[in-house]
Nucleic acid binder design. Structure first.
Lengths: 121, 121
DNA sequence: GGCATTGAAAACCTACAGGTTAATTATCCA
DNA sequence: TGGATAATTAACCTGTAGGTTTTCAATGCC
């Protein structure tokens, strides 16, 4: 049994699930409605499984209305993520100056830059 | 090949890896130093693998100093996480009120509700 | 050169994630 | 009562995650 935070991160580590969460920001939706954008890529049971992962992580709550299961977003686990991130905020800002280097390193195809000499000491 | 954000979330979805990141906030450390707290629970190659996951997600950078690989924390991917979280911040705050209501609802016992009889604790 | 140390790589195992198809349950409606 | 609709469950497949043990490579030191 993994801890809650691992469960949350792992639930967020999938673009389909993040898209489902994004959709739920606009209000509750049934499983079918949530599945609709993905039905070209995957089947309904697959979406049901994704929803179960989100549910187990506490990010989604499934209600019932006749044969429909209206799903709602639950942001409580995201607050835990936020709290975890807080511990890294200072470090993030401290290394903001190196963000430029990072972006350059993944966008420009390794242009030999003499100004980079101080790195890699 | 998953997208960068999924890679990051999935790297964070493990307590060992998060502990490694936490350790790296205090400054760079060799693989052996990073592994030391876990060697009762797992072997060195396991930690090496965890480090590779963190490296692939861009959260850790491995340098070289003789036979040591000094690892440093890289928070750039955490900024992406932060940006993603931003989209949910409004919703988080909005649901803070409902959290209060919820807490009240479970602390102040309301009238026994007959509709709850079907629940099996 | 020979050896200890640091770490990575290879080969392997088990469990689980994410997908499928097909069957099942629950509900509404005519 | 019987069908259509919504969603879950079951059974199965494949790939990968996370661990192990064993072997290999690079480096510093006598």
């Amino acid at each position: 049994m993994p801890d809650a935070l691992s469960l949350t991160f792992s639930a967020l580590a999938d673009p389909t699930r993040r898209a489902i969460l994004a959709r739920l920001r606009d209000g509750e939706a049934s499983v079918g409605q949530l599945a609709e954008p993905f039905l070209g890529r995957m089947t309904l049971p697959a979406v049901t499984k994704h929803l179960k992962v989100l549910e187990r992580a506490g990010l989604v709550t499934k209600g019932r209305d006749a044969q429909w299961r209206p799903c709602t977003l639950n942001t409580a686990p995201l607050r835990d993520v936020d709290a975890w991130m807080e511990e890294y905020r200072a470090h993030m800002e401290a290394s903001l100056d190196r963000l430029g280097d990072y972006l350059k390193s993944i966008t420009t195809p390794t242009r030999p830059d003499p100004a980079d000499d101080h790195r890699d000491r």
